[in-house]
Write a protein that binds this DNA or RNA. Structure first.
Lengths: 255, 255
DNA sequence: GAACATCGGTCGGCATTACCGAACGACAGT
DNA sequence: ACTGTCGTTCGGTAATGCCGACCGATGTTC
């Protein structure tokens, strides 16, 4: 296997850097962050600007992501088979459960939300599609971890971030939870990312039974769980039915 | 001005190619479409795959866009100042007009929709954010053309596509329409893209009065226009007020 | 207000880099 | 079983993009 194209890797690193900080970055910041010479970084940025992947503030000269990326991102949604086959089932699940439904796939050690159906009531909600959730503190992420879609090692070595006092930060805690998820076939997250919020998720399998993503419902903890903080069995049932239906659509034989 | 980085331009071309056709593409197709040797295209694709910009179907070996692009695309929305400053005004405009509101910016000879507020009634609507509209057959596009945000020349030379029998396809037709838009300060599109649909749009100005985008309302022709097919004055008023308000927020002094 | 620090941008020489084209192995259709 | 096509690998070559010093503008400090 020959080496990857250096300049493209660097360009991707620059784009990721611009995406991580949500403010505009100067040429010097970009260059030093990636250990590049200013001239080199400038050449790459100029090229990225030329193809509309980055824009430059004419006043300050600072750089930010460009418009072409938005179109590429939505084009990804259009061709994503997991998403397109899930849409109808996700709608139905939101209707049956009365809660918000989200679909996730792993990306760079996080969970990328690729579909989001709002809770059917008319409350104000923000679209999560494109957002990245933590693996260890979201129901979608825990399911993906449990079924080996994405490696666990980095999380077990470095202490993961604690969002609330319920977040599983100890490797053994997390490992035990993942074992349970494997046994049960579904996973939950109760106030581990945000107090008052909870979610449950189940794996989606593609051809050959390989887990390719996860689907979950989430909402206020009092609507997801009973008074003892355990997920409502009725929700689990409809969720797992949806996950199975999507898996079947994707070609997973007997799941 | 030194030359842009070749491999990055090629990588971007591959991504755009994958985004244009909404189906997966094989290596051979990619290579021949761009006039590259198979080996070259493979190296670039391998790199793009390595950074999650493209994915490869393990069964067929064909390539499609990757998940990282979705996150980059939404990150672009997060930092886009035109969008963030417009959100509140767009919401208000949708409420006052009772119609769907969209914000556009030019991209590659089309209009990129960067914000979309659904019509306030509860009908089923699909989110247009990230979609590309034609310049000559959308109200947003015509406004951007009229105010010189994007060059008109390519459209005037090549006959633009006719979506309906009302689409302006003759250069002189289009030129006259653009002149009117410049005079009036707003533009309309009545069944030029899709029969039964109409829209009106107004320019948004940034610092120094430069037009940086457009905002528009659109919906069924009978709700946008009067019986003679002319846009309702009340809609035009609230639309222009919103456009002015956003322009002021962006730093356009006296607009 | 003048000197300075910092910024984005430019340029030319060097050698690393990525390109090309042919050959390979797997697969599907015939 | 053969043949066409596919994605992939590989090595030679020179074109390519990288580096670091330099430039001019901007805004900051004393």
């Amino acid at each position: 296997m020959a080496g990857p194209v250096q300049s493209i890797e660097r360009a991707a690193a620059i784009l990721r850097l611009l995406a991580s900080g949500s403010r505009r970055l100067g040429l010097g910041e970009v260059a030093s962050s990636l250990g590049l010479a200013k001239g080199t970084a400038h050449g790459i940025l100029r090229t990225l600007q030329h193809v509309d992947f980055v824009e430059q503030d004419p006043a300050t000269g600072k750089y930010q992501l460009g418009a072409a990326l938005l179109h590429l991102g939505t084009s990804y949604l259009d061709v994503n088979e997991l998403r397109s086959r899930s849409i109808n089932w996700a709608d139905a699940l939101a209707a049956r459960s009365g809660e918000a439904v989200r679909l996730g796939t792993p990306l760079e050690g996080r969970v990328l939300v690729i579909h989001h159906v709002f809770r059917p009531d008319d409350t104000l909600q923000t679209l999560d599609v494109g957002a990245l959730l933590p693996l260890h503190a979201s129901s979608l992420g825990k399911v993906l971890l449990a079924f080996g879609v994405t490696p666990v090692d980095p999380l077990l070595e470095a202490e993961p971030e604690a969002y609330t006092r319920h977040t599983l930060v100890h490797p053994e805690q997390l490992n035990r939870a993942l074992g349970e998820i494997r046994d049960l076939g579904w996973g939950a997250e109760v106030q581990e990312m945000s107090m008052g919020e909870a979610g449950i998720a189940a794996p989606i399998r593609g051809q050959g039974g390989l887990v390719v993503g996860a689907i979950g419902v989430s909402g206020p903890v009092e609507r997801i769980c009973d008074t003892k903080g355990r997920p409502l069995p009725a929700l689990i049932t409809v969720l797992r039915e949806a996950a199975r239906a999507i898996s079947r659509d994707l070609g997973a034989a007997r799941w």
